[in-house]
């Protein structure tokens, strides 16, 4: 008589009441959901891709003359592309936080909290979904570079390594916007927060190597994690597999990603603390 009571599947559902979804599956399901939603709002993704491609073109032609001084015989494109990739990653990072704000506003977030899904999976899903979108954006920038004639010193392997750094950095940036979204629940605050990172992309070896900087900006650049990431990417594109630079870059990105995940996780805890 009833669809539900007589259903074998329904019974299965009851039998599974104590079953748990494995953590990795929770994370991949949440990531998939975030990607699904992200690609249904392409208007949010396209501007930051276009602006990144624009900067790549402008930096290349604007500064390649000056670069002859410190990059004799090398391509300025390989020097400037990493900063374009980081900018692309940064300008698109808000998307991850915005999707969390949307979920809070639509009430879907509460719905998820009322299921047995782990809170860490909800946060990780949002961060990973955001980071994957950012990696697609950085891939477009990389492709632009290759089309402009970039010949990476480490070949195709280096290209993927650079994109790997991009993914890790994306997790850090996306984690930051997700954390702000969870803290504030506000679209404006989340969008505004991404600007806090912009100085980091300038107080570093943005257009010249660190050695050519001096004074406070040199000190600041040496403290800035972006510097180590830039050096790792530049090594891959300009000189070759430099283990030291790569490791420093990796550790910096990984530490940033971990820090931001922790920030986001505790922001969720604070938001969902039952009062």
């Amino acid at each position: 008589m009833s669809v539900i009571t007589t259903s074998a599947l329904g019974m299965a559902a009851k039998g599974e009441r104590t079953a748990r979804m494995p953590f990795w599956l929770q994370v991949s399901t949440m990531t998939w959901r975030n990607l699904l939603v992200a690609f249904r709002t392409p208007a949010a993704l396209i501007p930051s891709i276009l602006i990144s491609v624009f900067f790549t073109l402008v930096y290349k032609d604007l500064l390649s003359g000056a670069a002859a001084f410190f990059l004799p015989g090398k391509d300025y494109l390989g020097f400037v592309l990493p900063i374009s990739i980081i900018s692309a990653s940064l300008s698109g990072a808000g998307v991850a936080g915005q999707s969390v704000v949307r979920d809070i506003e639509s009430g879907y977030f509460n719905k998820l909290l009322l299921t047995p899904i782990s809170r860490a999976a909800i946060v990780l899903g949002a961060i990973l979904g955001g980071a994957i979108v950012l990696t697609l954006q950085t891939s477009v920038v990389m492709l632009t570079g290759l089309l402009l004639g970039l010949q990476p010193a480490t070949g195709i392997g280096g290209v993927f390594a650079v994109l790997g750094y991009g993914l890790l950095l994306g997790m850090g940036f996306a984690g930051f916007t997700v954390a702000i979204a969870l803290r504030s629940g506000s679209a404006g605050a989340t969008q505004g927060a991404t600007f806090l990172f912009f100085p980091l992309t300038f107080i570093t070896a943005t257009f010249t190597p660190v050695e050519l900087l001096s004074g406070w900006i040199k000190t600041a650049a040496q403290l800035n994690p972006i510097t180590y990431l830039l050096e790792a990417m530049r090594a891959l594109l300009l000189t070759g597999w430099e283990a030291d630079a790569m490791l420093r870059g990796f550790l910096t990105c990984a530490a940033l990603a971990l820090l931001m995940f922790t920030f986001a996780f505790f922001s969720l805890r604070a938001r969902t603390q039952r009062r």
Binding site: A13, E16, T29, R33, P116
Partner: peptide, 16 residues
């Protein structure tokens, strides 16, 4: 997704 979070497999969840 809702069904999966309660421990059903993807196939069970779709049936449900």
């Amino acid at each position: 997704i809702q069904c999966q979070t309660f421990g059903m497999s993807r196939k069970q969840a779709q049936g449900r």
